[in-house]
Write a protein that binds this DNA or RNA. Structure first.
Lengths: 239, 239
DNA sequence: AAACTTAGCGTATTTTTTACGCTAAGTTTG
DNA sequence: CAAACTTAGCGTAAAAAATACGCTAAGTTT
């Protein structure tokens, strides 16, 4: 038996929230020959890892190149490396033609990433896909998206990561909409506020929502310092 | 920049519970030359992955070889692949001498695994180490153990995995001891029972504990079918 | 027989969750 | 400009879950 000696890549499931739906960033795979004009499969942003590059570093690089953003929230959540994950053949042929290496097996480390849509210049609607309407992707990327969402649903209940998807200043309603979008449930606005407002790390700003066609709501911000300070008292986030 | 083309291994953090403490299975690294007689570092059980071998399969194989057990609970929880994780030099020299490949970088996929100590023949005390007294291990294995424990602490609150560590038939007290050992807290026995006993998937057996020097307790078993059936009603496990 | 240990049931109190009524502050429509 | 409409935001009552702790029962050990 010989030892596995694969290439290793990172793939990123980038989530964004447009104040209605949770979306995923998908890119078109590079067209190589004209013959595969018919195929319009999309893929997750990803990259092979360089020698001497740390795993996380590689994921940050990939996202930096793609979005121009630094300081993005990134979390490794699973490794995919089944011997037959590079199927169907059609996709593998495409991979062979784009990469100059002799690919036979690629182990990929999957990350999910949360970005504030407002900050990025990636606002072209084209590339963002509602997470519940993701088209067919190359290889096992559909499975990767599914697992990323499950992971996000788990994490958002106990970790203060919703603020990575919201604008710096946000309303309680926006926060509720986000939770509803991610968890796929409806919540009672009055009970939601009652749980959220007492949280010690939410700071009420002296500023109101603008440009809405109804009573403008108060804006809040997340204070990470206060969060760290009170995290013991907070028995999780529990939403 | 060249592409990373590393070897890939699996490392397993094997947990066991001896009805007092949570323990981890550690093995002695193979001695190669007589000169490193002085060094007694331990390591996690692990193995390089074979070509054409699935990742999980490789972890199962490693554990099967080690414990003789099938159907072990295994969960991948993190990948470690920093370019400089194979330090200190001393450890790397040892690795070079045991492996016939030209190792310069190994990406390792870490699993944690739960076994019923009673079922395994690995009862020699020597190899089991209390999880809070793990000695210095090779490479980054101490960090891997630490992260595995954190993952276990998270998972045991919402998933029915405590039963992987308990005997098939167990008492409520044993279950409580296990939770206390893993979470590192004391719980009130009366309140613990009140939470546990109503769970629909715990089956009261018509059998009592034996060989204890006090009032013997009722034995229970876990019924996975019932668990699957009621999992919707169970808003998590929440202990 | 007395002392000791853990099992196992119960009760009272506090905290958290859930359900829902209602007014206030804006915008849009006619 | 008034009426209709929408969302913000406060409050109250009831149900459910978590916490604290008293006590008896059923065994073992001395």
């Amino acid at each position: 038996m010989t030892r596995l000696n694969p290439h290793v890549s990172v793939d990123c499931v980038v989530f964004g929230f447009d104040s209605r739906k949770l979306k995923v960033l998908l890119i078109e795979r590079e067209k190589i020959s004209s013959e595969d004009e018919k195929s319009h499969k999309l893929k997750l942003p990803g990259s092979l890892i360089f020698e001497n590059e740390d795993l996380d570093e590689s994921a940050y690089r990939t996202l930096k190149e793609l979005t121009g953003l630094d300081n993005i929230y990134l979390k490794q959540f699973h490794v995919f490396g089944s011997p037959n994950r590079l199927t169907p053949e059609e996709d593998l042929n495409w991979l062979r033609s784009t990469s100059n290496t002799n690919v036979d097996r690629v182990v990929t480390i999957a990350y999910y990433s949360l970005i504030k849509l407002q900050d990025s210049d990636l606002t072209e609607k084209r590339i963002w896909h509602p997470v519940d309407e993701v088209p067919e992707l190359v290889f096992d990327h559909n499975i990767i998206v599914k697992m990323a969402l499950e992971e996000l649903q788990r994490e958002i209940r106990t970790e203060p990561i919703c603020f990575e998807l919201l604008p710096k200043k946000f309303t309680i309603r926006q926060m509720q909409d986000l939770y509803e979008a991610i968890l796929g449930v409806k919540m009672d606005n009055r009970n939601f506020r009652k749980k959220i407002i007492p949280l010690k790390f939410l700071v009420l700003l002296n500023e109101k929502e603008k440009g809405v066609s109804h009573k403008p709501a108060q804006l809040y911000k997340f204070d990470r310092k206060l969060y760290e300070k009170h995290r013991k008292e907070i028995s999780g986030f529990n939403l």
